[in-house]
Write a protein that binds this DNA or RNA. Structure first.
Length: 1106
RNA sequence: GGACGAUUAGCUCAGUUGGUUAGAGCAUUUGCUUGACGUGCAAAGGGUCGGAGGUUCGAGUCCUCCAUCGUCCACCA
């Protein structure tokens, strides 16, 4: 017997354990089923569960559970992200500084990495278990971590590939530098913040100024003008500044006076009349006494400040661009530790802000400081630690995303990748169109270390400018020769090996090892080769080999149609296995003969093939060491490559050895020891560089591993819209680059959780909802329902305790419906063989039909990703239809139609459990088990197939239920409102229609129960009572006492009024020629019907006598 | 500065392609209870759908403008 209330804590953990132990989260291995894959956004390994996680887990789990029930090979693949900068910051702050009073330098790089790794592994298991609490039905056997050896290996290799393809470059450019994190950041890793700051005016002397300049200037008012003479200043200053009496100044404004140390020009707008005559002039930079030019640049806003801008190309993005345009010197004056560099003259070594103070002071003393004004402006801050960003020049690795972005844009535009909500399409495309190179190196230790190795000897020759600088970044490299891009520090020769596409002899099942016999590619084979074009486009190979067989050449030629290459090198070592006398035999006959026999008649031994492969590899080693080579060959060669190059086996296991996928690239690397001592680059990759490869690497791609072949490209990428640029854009670009295919077909961007007032949830505001506390209090199902019902793609949603409480109530309601069924039926009976039975009870017919309507609607909503709406419909059906009407009526009729009712109630409840399971997996699974619906668990049951319910269509009686419902609603309302539930008063129902009268009589007990009127009778009309029409033929009649008559009268009058108003509207409509002519038939006829009905009702109401 | 979104009952939100008298939950008021559930049941009050135009036989729904709020992007010294 179920308990009175559902207590989630009692069941949730156990249920999850059972699912997991029974391995029900793993995708079915039935390959005839379609795959449906979601790669989960990996949460940061350092943190704990927050509502954002709960949101995506809920939505993704809904998708996966639904698809699993629909019979897909559903895979929800979990994982965690090492989250470079963030983890390093957390680890430094919380562990090193707080607990041990250490810095990372105390540990050193290796130790730091090791300890940070352990720290992550610990947090990782915490968050993984928290995902279990959320009910995520993900396949834990496939879980991944961005720093797993296999993943890391591929991440580094991708960098190498990009480098080989000319898409990676190193350069010294202006970057966003976070002084706290001590690293470069990409643009999207910075935020903007309004800040109340100050702006200072500084005077820059014009060198050798002439009178005419001064005269022109005097035409301007001091406020907007902008050149002022020293004489304009007060006499005190004049006295101090006697020597400069006749000099002119340009006044610039700045919020960051310290940057003036690096000024190399002052810019004005070329259209600015005020400064036309400054052409060719130079200025003397105060404090530094450096001569700097006046330049003219369109980017200067004439209306802002004085219209003169000091230009510091090395420390400001705008100035940097101006500097590039005008070929200005870039003088670095602020270093990566926020100190003034040795270029800063006497200020060298000072803290940035300290220097600012001193500079202002010195300027004041020199009488060169103008006004100081408060100034509100936007500053850039570090997305992670909120520290103000410094712009400075730094050597970084960049990815030229332009070609990849172009492809991504195409994919989005042509619908290859669909995005929900639609509007995000434009946002994403606009962002991709900006084509800014992506800086991917970060100056932190935690992450994938940049796989670039410098020759130590050369490094020692170059000078390390700054003692504090622990990076080798600033060391100069002469050219490409001086470094090696390598994932291991060894010289790496990459082989991409492709088996030919399907050829004629494959179809004919004929053995062919003689290259003189031409078997061409079939149409399918050509198609297979064509599918490689996208992958090879833009890729560079140092040599391309084919075997002597025409099929490899054809495959190569088609596959490389979009690729630039010189020639195909034919090498007989790559030929297919020789068959000797068995050449041309059918496979059947061939395999009848033993290996030994075959060798005797000229067949080729495995040893011999291996010898050929070895020879070939030696050849490559000799001629293409450190390069990348593409090979088109045969399965025999591929297999033996696998055996020979033990370091990597793309076949994964022996089961797959039977069939090697055709026209699929396999990747191998040959390693050779370098001859010189090498030192690895000290930077690590931007976290998003590895997560950008996530859908590929988690599946073991781009190597043709089983999972990669079975699940890539994935079906759905579900994530928050806030990381669309960070992540979605990068995955599209890198996934396509790595595999030739976009990593997912659909993107669903969920909204972000907000509190009741619509403000973002954050720890600092304290308005966040902790999912774990919430679950503890209300259960996982309640939280999941609150997060999913009423949410839609891209729309932020509000979540608050009352909402969760409401969902908890619903879960309990469902539980009790189950409990009620258990009380009545003990267990449920859903076997399909009863489907042929006639259903006689009208309530049973009605609920069955209603439930199927819901199935149909909800299924469509699921298919269209309207999960919020689907959930709401199920909830409403369960509560307001099944419980409030059906179960209430059932209480009365269950005894008469026990078997039939048991069957129908079971069937409908089964339906409810199935529909609701994706949203509320725990309570539904528990009920499913407790009511013994099936031996299978609910999670593995099949979705309702409407085809099995065709017979329901022919059942009749559901319309009668609609009539009864109406009777109940009308009667109940009057009974409560007018009669004030006076049980003494007599209440009657009356129908002019004989059948209806029988219907009412038959359902009298139900009507009594539903209306709450104990004395309800079916009777002939009594004219002395309050008689209210319900339908055209049915009326309810009440015997009411004197004081209630007035109330009744008001009610009836009100109703008449409303109806009359309504009917006037309809009348107008119907007399409108346009409406009659244009409205669709259905609408028109419906309107007419309603008009008549309403008219009749009014008439009936009007004749009521009180 | 550019782009996008929102504005419907006191609060939080639905309202699919324009077509019956605009819905739900919460909150409010009133009443109900001997067994599925008070984490419940029933009834009631509450909206000229932000404003102004327009298209249409018909607009919460489509178009234009405006207002307010919000978000994202962007180099304003």
């Amino acid at each position: 017997m179920l308990e009175k209330n559902f207590e989630p804590k009692k069941y949730e953990e156990l249920l999850y354990k059972t699912w997991e132990e029974k391995n029900l989260f793993a995708p079915s291995d039935d390959l005839s089923k379609k795959p449906f894959t979601i790669i989960m956004p990996p949460p940061n390994a350092n943190g704990s569960l927050h509502l954002g996680h709960a949101t995506f887990v809920t939505i993704e789990d809904i998708m996966i559970r639904y698809k699993r029930m629909r019979g897909y090979r559903a895979l929800l693949l979990p994982g965690t992200d090492h989250a470079g900068i963030q983890t390093q910051a957390v680890f430094e702050r919380d562990i090193l500084i707080k607990e041990r009073n250490q810095t990372k330098f105390d540990l050193g790089r290796e130790k730091f990495y090791e300890e940070c790794y352990n720290f992550c592994i610990n947090s990782k298991s915490t968050i993984e278990n928290q995902f279990r609490i959320l009910g995520a039905s993900c396949d834990w056997s496939r879980k991944k971590f961005t720093l797993d050896p296999e993943i890391s290996k591929q991440v580094l290799k991708t960098f190498k590939d990009l480098y080989r393809d000319g898409l990676v470059f190193k350069g010294k450019y202006l970057v966003n530098w976070c002084p706290r994190c001590g690293t470069t950041l990409s643009n999207i890793e910075t935020d903007h913040k309004d800040e109340n700051d100050k702006i200072w005016e500084i005077k820059y002397k014009i060198k050798n100024s002439e009178k005419n300049v001064m005269m022109n200037m005097s035409n301007h008012k001091p406020q907007d003008g902008i050149l002022r003479q020293a004489q304009d200043d007060n006499s005190k200053r004049q006295a101090q500044d006697d020597n400069n009496q006749n000099e002119n100044f340009v006044i610039v404004a700045t919020t960051r006076p310290e940057t003036m140390l690096g000024d190399t020009a002052v810019a004005v707008n070329p259209r600015d009349e005020r400064y036309k005559n400054l052409a060719g002039k130079t200025l003397i930079l105060p404090l530094m006494n450096r001569e700097i030019p006046i330049i003219f640049d369109e980017s200067v806003d004439m209306k802002f400040g004085t219209g003169c801008v000091k230009v510091t190309p090395a420390h400001d993005p705008v100035d940097y661009e101006i500097g590039k345009r005008h070929n200005l010197e870039m003088i670095e004056v602020i270093d990566k530790f926020d100190k003034i560099t040795e270029n800063g003259g006497v200020y060298a070594g000072m803290e940035k802000l300290e220097a600012r103070k001193k500079i202002l002071e010195d300027l004041k003393n020199l009488n060169l400081l103008g006004e100081e004004k408060p100034h509100k402006h936007e500053v850039r801050i570090c997305e992670r630690c909120k520290t103000k960003i410094e712009s400075l020049l730094s050597d970084e690795w960049y990815v030229n995303i332009k070609p990849m972005a172009k492809k991504a844009i195409e994919g989005i535009e042509n619908g290859e990748v669909k995005i929900l909500p639609e509007r995000s399409k434009k946002v994403l495309i606009d962002w991709l169109k900006e084509f800014q190179p992506w800086p991917i190196s970060r100056q932190i230790w935690w992450g994938h270390r940049v796989p670039v190795w410098y020759k130590k000897e050369k490094l020692q020759n170059s000078k390390n400018e700054n003692q504090n600088e622990i990076s080798i970044k600033n060391m100069k490299m002469k050219d490409d020769e001086d470094f090696l891009v390598s994932t291991t520090g060894k010289i790496e020769t990459d082989l991409v090996v492709v088996r030919h596409g399907e050829a004629e002899h494959n179809v004919l099942k004929i053995k062919n090892g003689d290259p003189k016999i031409d078997y061409h590619l079939t149409e399918i084979g050509k198609k297979q080769a064509e599918n490689l074009q996208e992958f090879f486009e833009g890729k560079h190979f140092d040599a391309i080999f084919v075997s002597e067989h025409i099929r490899t050449r054809e495959t190569a030629e088609i596959a490389l149609k979009k690729t630039k290459y010189e020639k195909l090198i034919v090498d007989e070592l790559l030929n297919d296995k020789k068959n000797g006398e068995l050449e041309g035999f059918s496979e059947n006959e061939y395999y009848k003969i033993s290996e030994n026999e075959r060798l005797k008649i000229g067949g080729e031994s495995i040893e011999n093939i291996q010898k050929r492969v070895k020879l070939f590899i030696e050849k490559i080693r000799k001629n293409y060491k450190g390069k990348r080579v593409l090979i088109f060959t045969h399965s025999a060669i591929l297999r033996n490559l696998n055996i020979l190059l033990e370091h990597y086996d793309p076949l994964n296991n022996e089961n797959s050895s039977g069939k090697l996928p055709k026209a699929t690239p396999y990747f191998y690397t040959l390693f050779d020891e370098p001859t010189e001592e090498l030192v690895q680059d000290e930077d690590t990759f931007d976290t998003w560089f590895s997560s950008g490869q996530w859908p590929v690497t988690t599946l073991g791609g781009p190597n043709p591993s089983e999972d990669f072949l079975n699940f890539y490209p994935t079906d759905m990428m579900e994530t928050g819209w806030d990381i669309i640029f960070f992540w979605v854009a990068r995955m599209l670009m890198l996934g396509k680059y790595m595999t030739g295919k976009f990593p997912f077909k659909n993107v669903y961007l969920h909204g972000l959780a907000r509190d009741k007032n619509g403000t973002k949830m954050s720890k600092s505001k304290g308005n966040g909802i902790d999912p774990l506390i919430t679950i503890e209090k209300y259960g996982t199902d309640a939280l999941r329902l609150a997060l999913s019902i009423g949410s839609s793609a891209g729309e932020d949603f509000r979540i608050y305790e009352e909402k969760i409480e409401g969902m908890r109530n619903f879960v309990n309601k469902l539980w009790n419906a189950g409990r009620f069924l258990e009380i009545n039926f003990n267990n449920l009976e859903v076997s399909n063989n009863k489907s042929q039975n006639k259903i006689e009870n009208i309530w049973n017919v009605w609920i069955l039909k209603k439930s199927l309507e819901v199935v149909s609607e909800v299924t469509e909503d699921f298919e269209n990703h309207r999960y919020g709406i689907a959930g709401e419909k199920i909830k409403n059906f369960t509560w307001n239809v099944f419980c409030d009407w059906y179960l209430e009526a059932m209480k009365i009729f269950v005894k008469e139609n026990f078997n039939e009712t048991k069957f129908v109630a079971s069937k409908v409840f089964e339906t409810i459990l199935k529909l609701l399971h994706p949203f509320a997996p725990f309570v539904t699974e528990q009920l499913w088990g407790d009511l013994k619906i099936s031996d299978k668990m609910l999670i593995e049951s099949e979705w309702i197939d409407l085809k099995n319910f065709g017979w329901v269509k022919n059942l009749i009686g559901d319309e009668d239920v609609e009539i009864l419902k109406k009777v109940v609603e009308e009667t109940r309302s009057i009974f409560v409102d007018i009669l004030e539930r006076d049980d003494e008063a007599k209440s009657f129902l009356f129908s002019e229609n004989k059948n209806e009268k029988i219907l009412l009589e038959k359902n009298l007990e139900i009507l009594k129960n539903l209306t709450g009127i104990k004395n309800l009778e079916i009777s002939d009309s009594k004219t002395f009572s309050l008689k209210t029409p319900i339908t055209n033929t049915i009326s309810a009649e009440f015997e009411i006492s004197g004081e209630k008559k007035e109330k009744a009268k008001i009610r009836v009058e009100k109703e008449i009024q409303a109806l009359e108003k309504y009917i006037t509207g309809i009348d107008e409509k119907l007399s409108n020629k346009g409406f009659v002519a244009n409205a669709p038939k259905e609408i028109l006829e419906n309107t007419k019907k309603i008009f008549e009905k309403s008219k009749q009702k009014i008439a009936k109401l009007k004749i009521i006598k009180f």
